[in-house]
Amino acid sequence: MKPFRYHRIKTLQEASHLTQEPGAVILAGGTNLIDMMRLEIMNPAAVVDIQSLPLNQIETLPSGGFRIGSLVRNSDLAFHPSIQKEYPVLSQAILSGASPQIRNQATVGGNLMQRTRCTYFRDGISPCSKRNPGTGCSAEHGYHRSHAVLGISDSCSATHPSDMCVALAALDAQIVLEGKKEKRTVPITEFYLLPQNTPWKETALEPAEIITAVDLPELPEGTRTCYLKVRDRSSYEFALVSAAVVLEFNQNQIQKARIALGGIAVKPWRVPEAEKLLHHSTPSKKLFQTCAETALKGAKPKKDNEFKVELAKRVILHALSLASKTKKE
């Protein structure tokens, strides 16, 4: 690890002031940042520890829904009774990620901002435009079994590794950003950027801004949800493919559907075309199959990750069937 200055700050103003310094980075739970610093992939000159900010509340919003402070620990969010009851998909997604120890330390903001697990990015030496702009992508012709098939470009096919964010995408969550003059809210679907030719630009977060909260819109009565994750071992492993499904039901009819995919895309991936097929529909296996086919239409697999396309279709099909059978109390 390279030397750095450590600051424990107490106010948002201090945080945004200090993070404007070149080479400064925010520390929340540290479960990703400390790893990145030990690997010397991230070598900040200053570490701004925000743990003392009052951002660890889960509150109801006047408009319905919930506001989750960015310092809420992953475990506390997943086990929160209201979250388990109102947004089971979010609890399931969080509990499927990392390990209990990591989730006790990890925060919501850190989970949103965690870096990719691409082995070339993490090895610190291979050409990688995300790590060293302009050096190219080693996964292009190298090992890419764990890489994305959706949203990729020639310069990067690294996946966004989070489970929580896949559920947040299916819930249409809003990310609350503060630190600049204007506090602003960005839909999670617009928060992450496609790699295109600039894979080092990952999010809409600007210098001096920090994530202060995540807002969850209220789900209508009768909404049914499911998070399904498929991986190489049954626990403590990142997703090969995952799907978060949110189905708004009226009697036995699906009114609206939202589907987000993880493990196969460069960011938590929504599939609007496929979702549209389910609006005002009666659930059936055939319909779900067509929906799954549509969701993967834009996939660009390579040799080692071709299996993910079929796997993803099956995961979507299964998640839709499971969700339509689980009635919200």
Partner: peptide, 26 residues
């Protein structure tokens, strides 16, 4: 030393965490 095995588990304010991923300063 990367959060991948759990051998470094301790209780921090009563909660189990991986001590390899936490700065003493924090």
């Amino acid at each position: 030393d990367h959060g991948q095995c759990g051998t470094c588990t301790i209780l921090l304010d009563g909660k189990r965490v991986n001590s390899c991923l936490i700065l003493a300063a924090s």
